[in-house]
Design a binder for these strands. Structure first.
Lengths: 100, 100
DNA sequence: CCGTATCCGTTTGGATACTG
DNA sequence: CAGTATCCAAACGGATACGG
């Protein structure tokens, strides 16, 4: 499970699902994340082979992060967990307010 | 993701996949887990609706933990994550030892 | 724009001892 | 057997300041 460990790691993976994103784009995608933590997570996920870091030779240069093929395999799993979470929340609301 | 948060939570879920287990059985299933943490995780997972706690009126009485239907839905997701982890480990070994 | 370094409060989990 | 209470060290993440 270490592969998705750390605060915001699943969010980072999730926001890369549609294609490459830059550092500051990810910061805006995941509002309350700090630069420090985003940087840490990106480096960890890169070290584990979940994401790839690419420096684009544009003017000005920019850095892009994207999922590796293996990283992409995590998406359905994260989806499934989130969906169970939603069902659980709905059920717990019903327990508290039986008319819901 | 809070649904699987906390140390050993995925292991607890995993070891309930084949049916109910008792407290001390889970302790032995997950060797380095402490009673305190196992107790905490069981209580959290129960509170979230992932597992169910049942007191068996046997002699002596025993306590059994089992997955709820929603908890069972987490198994394929955990499987998928673990499998990606295995592939990642294999790939990283190859990177370090190109003949592997 | 893309980060890193430092400080610092909070949370976590382990060890141990104890209870019904 | 099935936990709970307490103490403690380590890890974590946030805020801030700073560098390439």
């Amino acid at each position: 499970m270490a592969v998705i460990a750390g605060a915001w790691a699943p969010n980072v993976i999730w926001h890369l699902r549609a294609g490459p994103r830059r550092f500051n784009e990810l910061r805006l995608d995941i509002p309350p994340i700090s630069a420090k933590v985003l940087s840490q997570r990106l480096r960890e996920l890169e070290g584990r082979g979940v994401i790839r870091r690419t420096i684009q030779p544009t003017t000005p240069p920019s850095v892009e992060y994207s999922l590796t093929p293996l990283g992409t395999e995590l998406l359905p799993a994260l989806d499934a967990i989130v969906e169970v979470g939603h069902k659980l929340k709905a059920r717990n609301r019903m327990d508290d307010h039986p008319q819901g």
